[in-house]
């Protein structure tokens, strides 16, 4: 995120918080749409449970919207940080198995939260990803690059030991990982675009 994007995010956040505090329901929808994908990702990583992550996502919004409507935020530009804090606390609370005081399901909030239909990375099946990754590895010209990916992602070895063992420098290592990620990202996004074509009668 460069400075311009960072400033833009701060301005958008401040604007959304002010509008929500002033009772603007459209702003609530915008806010939920803007941050739900990231919150969902964060919660899924922390809980390792898709269903629980969805529950916590609703709860995060229930807590955040009530607070913002009633009192705004001390630092509205840091809205994203505030939302992350709530989500992390919920996930941490679950980990510690502390009795949580669950907020009741608010159907109004549930309706605001976008589903994952627009996210190509959640659409694509596990078998399809496996096929794409196989193709990606077959296209690698160097056996060593394939080994870097396998050692890092499958055997969970750390960068330093892989670089030492395979006698590669850190820059090359980073590049292999980056390129593999970019290639997979492009094929998933391209496949998603193709799937959006529909026969219109």
């Amino acid at each position: 995120m460069n400075d311009a994007t960072h400033n833009e995010e701060r301005q958008v956040a401040e604007n959304l918080v002010t509008r929500v505090q002033n009772g603007d329901r459209t702003a609530e929808t915008e806010m939920v749409e803007r941050y739900s994908r990231g919150l969902r990702f964060l919660l899924r990583r922390k809980t390792r449970d898709t269903t629980l992550a969805e529950d916590f996502l609703q709860e995060t919004w229930a807590i955040a919207l009530v607070k913002i409507r009633d009192n705004g935020l001390d630092n509205p530009a840091r809205l994203a940080g505030y939302l992350c804090g709530i989500a992390n606390n919920l996930a941490l609370g679950e980990k510690r198995r502390v009795n949580r005081q669950r907020t009741s399901v608010n159907s109004e909030i549930v309706a605001l939260i976008p589903d994952e239909s627009s996210n190509p990375f959640r659409h694509v099946s596990r078998a399809e990803v496996c096929k794409q990754v196989r193709g990606l590895l077959e296209n690698l010209t160097k056996e060593r690059d394939r080994e870097i990916l396998e050692r890092f992602y499958v055997r969970e070895e750390d960068k330093e030991s892989i670089c030492k063992r395979l006698d590669v420098d850190g820059i090359h290592f980073n590049r292999v990982l980056y390129r593999a990620r970019q290639r997979l990202k492009s094929v998933i996004e391209a496949a998603d675009k193709r799937s959006h074509f529909r026969v219109v009668s």
């Binding site: 990702f41 990754v133 990620r181 997979l184 998933i188």
Partner: peptide
């Protein structure tokens, strides 16, 4: 986390890396 919350681009990178790891596994 604060940064990726509002960045679709960064979330795409995260999801691609996550899927890459899963595919390799």
């Amino acid at each position: 986390e604060e940064q990726f919350l509002s960045s679709d681009e960064l979330l795409n990178e995260l999801e691609a890396a996550e899927r890459l790891g899963q595919g390799l596994h």
